[in-house]
């Protein structure tokens, strides 16, 4: 398992998660997350090399629906929820870069 969590790691993770941390928060979270990850190292007490991962406890496969159109939501209802809507669309401040 990798080395201890650094302040830079936390800063990078916060950026990825679209959160802004103050300097104090950065210190606090580095310590707290570090503790939790430290605790997680107990998983290394077992040799898990040959164990397959399980992402989900659910064993059923091929759950599909038929290709049938069902009613959509009323546009006015949807746009009424929006923090800002213009011209029947959701309005956002300028986008700085293209989608990946």
């Amino acid at each position: 398992m990798s080395d201890a969590l650094s302040r830079d790691d936390v800063a990078k993770v916060a950026r990825l998660a679209r959160l802004v941390l103050s300097e104090d928060e950065l210190d606090l979270y580095t310590e707290q997350l570090g503790q939790i990850l430290e605790h997680a190292r107990d998983m290394n007490s077992l040799d898990l090399t040959d164990v397959l991962p399980t992402a989900h406890p659910f064993g059923v496969t091929n759950v599909v629906r038929e290709d049938v159109v069902t009613p959509s939501l009323d546009r006015e209802v949807v746009l009424a929820m929006a923090p800002h809507a213009v011209d029947h669309r959701f309005a956002v401040p300028r986008i700085l870069g293209e989608a990946p």
């Binding site: 029947h88 669309r89 309005a91 956002v92 401040p93 293209e98």
Partner: peptide, 10 residues
């Protein structure tokens, strides 16, 4: 996209 003030999403 470049230079726009805001965007509208559909």
């Amino acid at each position: 996209l470049a230079g726009a003030d805001s965007s509208l999403v559909d």
